[in-house]
Design a protein around this nucleic acid. Structure first.
Lengths: 133, 133
DNA sequence: CCGTATCCCGTAAGATACTG
DNA sequence: CAGTATCTTACGGGATACGG
């Protein structure tokens, strides 16, 4: 392997990395799951099906755009189902699939971890911020 | 409660939401954890301490900026420690704290979920993409 | 070797208005 | 009610060069 610039090495590393995650799709999915709205939507639905307006109310501050975008992505991945009832007005229900439920369990565990350890994190931050140097 | 515009209601909802996560800091931490680089760094360190250059090699494609930024944030939150050995050249080791290790366990579980269910996700995507309308 | 500092750009995502 | 369409803006994040 000849001499490479830092940029070339980084580029090559990225290509190898991309190739790697084709065989080991962990990082692809981790990427998808590392999304604020995904966590919130899945957590919200873990208590049972919800309508679009229910979700937009529960996940306060979410714009219709992001909510729809997130719901579509999760539907595509088989995490949740979208059920349209052609009444007037239209009614749409979102529910976790069994696949989604199993994921919700893990995200709930992370949520519980946050609840349990938030004080330690706060103390760590004060310690860190208070350190002069 | 008087009539509010959609914007006003959204604004108010966001304020309440912010107030809510002050008492229930779950979402704050979830936000922090919902980061691609956080997941990768914590996962990388779950096998033991690593030096800066080790991390930048293992987490292929990461720029020095993002790596440092992520490491500092996690250090501040007490997730990992940064140990400088004043040799020449300088040596810096990063290691998970017990707090970080407990988190790593959960993230590993999510990672395992991804590995287990990636095929289902792929099938779901093909089904979704193949659906004409 | 371990970063910091700077520039810069693409895009994620919020606000807003409108439709079936 | 359940979204779509459009504009705009902030900022995440990459490239690069340099300092301790």
């Amino acid at each position: 392997m000849p001499t490479l610039t830092a940029a070339q090495r980084r580029e090559q590393a990225r290509v190898e990395y991309d190739a790697f995650i084709k065989g080991c799709p962990t990082n692809q999915l981790l990427d998808r799951l590392s999304d604020k709205w995904v966590s919130l939507v899945v957590a919200a639905l873990s208590n049972g099906p919800m309508r679009y307006s229910d979700l937009s109310r529960k996940i306060a501050g979410v714009s219709p755009k992001m909510l729809t975008q997130t719901l579509r992505a999760l539907e595509r991945d088989g995490i949740l189902t979208r059920t349209v009832t052609p009444s007037v007005p239209v009614r749409v229900d979102y529910a976790l699939t069994p696949l989604g439920s199993s994921l919700a369990g893990l995200l709930t565990a992370v949520k519980a971890w946050a609840e349990t350890h938030i004080e330690e994190v706060h103390e760590a931050r004060e310690r860190y911020d208070g350190t002069p140097g």
